[in-house]
């Protein structure tokens, strides 16, 4: 059977030297690549055969050190684990290689990850436990308790999710998916004693979990399948369970769904905005609401539709609720 053993691929590679350049530019290389080659092989070939000044980070070559993460056609990848043939299948034979964050580029594909590490530092990414220096017995974690981490400990801090998060790209205070996953990893550990402190950090407005836009980019991009947004949801839940949720627009917005569903089965959109924003805060939505009303997009309270068999829904909301606010 004939198999295609090599393909011709054109690489546009991001170049920038903070010390000598004002603006970045791209160098183009057309190479024959084989089905065995990963992106890191190509970077090595460009550096060794074409331009020794190309700079990028590499270390383990086994997808565990996390330093070789870059973007290929906008997709965050580990250069050492991503096969060229897979990229070509998705994007075609022109592949653009860029740093994870263009605005943080120092030299070519190398970025300054200070912001990433600063976010981690905010959430105490380590076990806080007051244990004896010479314990009489082992401090065991049962398999059941270890499962509670939901594999958040698989994170290799490559930054792929952090630099793909649109909320973080706009709001620099936002802690971001990687550090949230770390906050969950240690707060979910039965040996840890700083869970409440971390929950207070992730519960703050602007920096905390409430600013997540739910785009699922972090779940998609993670090369280790850590699924950061699952951990972000868990942190939301833990904030409510710890009874430290503040009475603000973000918390009321989540809770408001339960109220609305219990009353109508469906979401009362207008009431959700009023309940979340409060009677004064809601006024800022009046101009848009009037435009929507004029186009038949607002249902008045007395016309609010209800789900059939609402009694079932009411019963389930009562019997299945696990938290209070």
């Amino acid at each position: 059977m004939d198999t295609i053993k090599s393909k011709q691929v054109t690489f546009k590679v991001f170049r920038f030297n903070e010390e000598t350049d004002y603006l970045p530019y791209y160098n183009t290389y057309t190479l024959d690549v084989t089905h065995e080659e990963v992106v890191l092989d190509i970077l090595n070939r460009i550096k060794w055969d074409h331009d020794g000044s190309l700079s990028y980070r590499r270390s383990c070559r086994h997808g565990i050190c996390g330093v070789c993460s870059i973007k290929a056609n906008g997709k965050g990848i580990l250069a050492c684990k991503t096969r060229l043939f897979d990229l070509v299948e998705t994007f075609g034979s022109e592949i653009t290689l860029e740093p994870l964050s263009i605005k943080r580029a120092i030299k070519d594909l190398i970025i300054d990850k200070k912001d990433f590490w600063d976010k981690h530092a905010q959430v105490q990414p380590f076990l806080v436990s007051d244990i004896e220096e010479h314990p009489a017995q082992e401090h065991l974690v049962s398999p059941h308790d270890a499962e509670k981490l939901l594999e958040a400990d698989y994170c290799i801090q490559c930054g792929a999710c952090h630099y793909s998060c649109p909320a973080l790209a706009i709001n620099e205070e936002f802690i971001g998916p990687a550090a949230f996953a770390a906050a969950y990893r240690f707060s979910a550990d039965v040996r840890d004693e700083a869970s409440l402190e971390r929950l207070h950090v992730v519960n703050e407005e602007a920096q905390g979990v409430w600013d997540c836009v739910k785009c699922m980019e972090c779940a998609e991009v993670c090369p280790k399948e850590v699924n950061p947004i699952e951990k972000i949801t868990k942190l939301h839940n833990m904030v409510f369970e710890a009874n430290i949720a503040k009475n603000n627009v973000a918390t009321r917005h989540a809770v408001g769904f339960a109220h609305s569903i219990e009353k109508h089965g469906l979401l009362d959109e207008g009431e959700l905005v009023r309940y979340s924003e409060g009677n004064i805060g809601v006024l800022k939505h009046v101009p848009v609401a009037l435009k929507m009303f004029a186009k038949g997009k607002i249902v008045l309270p007395w016309n609010m539709p209800k789900a059939d068999k609402l009694d079932e829904i009411k019963k389930l909301v009562k019997s299945s609720s696990t938290v209070k606010f």
């Binding site: 979990v209 739910k214 949801t233 939301h236 839940n237 409510f240 918390t251 917005h253 989540a254 809770v255 769904f257 339960a258 609305s260 569903i261 089965g265 469906l266 979401l267 789900a307 059939d308 068999k309 079932e312 829904i313 389930l316 909301v317 299945s320 609720s321 696990t322 938290v323 606010f325």
Partner: peptide
């Protein structure tokens, strides 16, 4: 499905994940 409830729109689960599951399963 006239009996269907709101899915929780990715927010109910932040407050009460189990309730969100029960309603969607219904």
């Amino acid at each position: 499905l006239t009996e269907a409830s709101c899915c929780g729109a990715s927010h109910l689960q932040d407050y009460d994940d189990f309730l969100s599951l029960v309603l969607n399963a219904r």
